[in-house]
Simulated assay, not measured.
Amino acid sequence: MWVWLAISFSALLHINAAYKGPKWQFYLFKPLTTGLLMVTLWQHGLSHFYQQAIFVGLLCSMVGDIFLMLPRDRFVQGLGSFLVAHIIYSVAFWSQLTSSMVWWLPAMLFGGGVIVFLLLLPTLGRLVIPVALYIGMITQMAWAAGEFWLTTQSLMGAFAFGGALIFMVSDSVLAIDRFRGPYHSATAIVMTTYYLAQSLIVLSALMMASA
């Protein structure tokens, strides 16, 4: 219980600093929040492949956090770090399938991904291919999590799928803010949904540890 309060407080301090400063608080608490999620998972053990993959995905996410908050624009490097994180999360989710897949789910998810891409397309410029690859990968990650939930009908799968869907929302808002024009509430929405998504994915791994 206390660790989740610490994670929530750290996330809140980062979001507050994004609007009001100080800069050191902004730079400290963004990776620290992800780091606390890693420590939480580490303390519960990494005995299963699923837990190990989620831990490595969090590590890649922390690297992406650092790239995206640097004073100089490191958007492509941050995008690449999160792309790797989504690949690793996907492998973890696919490893948990216990029966045949459903095919209406990817149709819905990739349809949504195409809509977001078309919304961003006029302003992407030279980033068309990297952004398209990223949207495809995060959509595939959500598909993997959804199949995990649908085939297992488990709370663990539900946490994973919920986290993946919220991750898509977070990244969609981030992309719209960056490519379609910034707006004041974007940072709060992006970071709140981001930390919620990561927390749900970690909770899915913790449920395996307690099983």
Rank of each mutant, 00 (worst) to 15 (best):
G64P: 01
H14L: 06
F29M: 11
Y194P: 00
F161N: 03
S90D: 11
L124F: 03
P122E: 02
F67G: 00
F148H: 08
T139E: 09
Q140H: 14
V131F: 02
L196D: 11
F148A: 08
W24I: 01
I15F: 11
N16G: 10
A18F: 09
V39D: 04
F29E: 07
L12H: 05
L206W: 07
S100K: 14
Y194W: 02
V3L: 14
V114I: 13
D65P: 00
M137D: 07
L83N: 08
S172R: 12
S95I: 02
F55Q: 03
D65Y: 00
T187R: 13
W104K: 09
S100Q: 12
I201E: 08
G35R: 05
Q96T: 09
I189D: 00
Q153R: 12
Y183F: 15
F159C: 07
S210R: 15
S81H: 05
Q43C: 11
M191W: 00
L206F: 07
G125D: 08
K23R: 12
V169K: 00
I166Y: 06
G45R: 03
P71D: 06
M208V: 13
Q198F: 01
M168T: 09
L32G: 10
L200M: 10
V39Q: 07
V169A: 02
D73V: 04
A164V: 04
F29T: 11
V76E: 05
R74L: 08
H14T: 04
L119N: 01
L41V: 01
P130S: 10
G80C: 06
S81I: 02
A209Q: 09
M62G: 10
L124P: 07
L28Y: 15
S100T: 12
V190G: 00
G111S: 13
S8I: 13
V76D: 03
I135D: 05
D65C: 00
L32W: 11
T139P: 08
A160K: 06
P22E: 15
V91S: 12
A18G: 11
M108H: 08
L37C: 02
T98S: 14
L165A: 14
S99P: 04
R178Y: 14
W4S: 08
T98V: 12
M101W: 09
M69E: 02
S199V: 03
W104S: 15
L118D: 11
F93S: 03
A160E: 03
L127D: 05
P122T: 01
T193P: 05
A17Q: 14
M141D: 10
L133C: 14
A132R: 02
S8N: 11
L109E: 09
A164D: 03
S99A: 13
I176M: 09
I189E: 00
F93M: 06
Q25V: 13
Y134H: 12
M108V: 15
Y27G: 10
M168R: 06
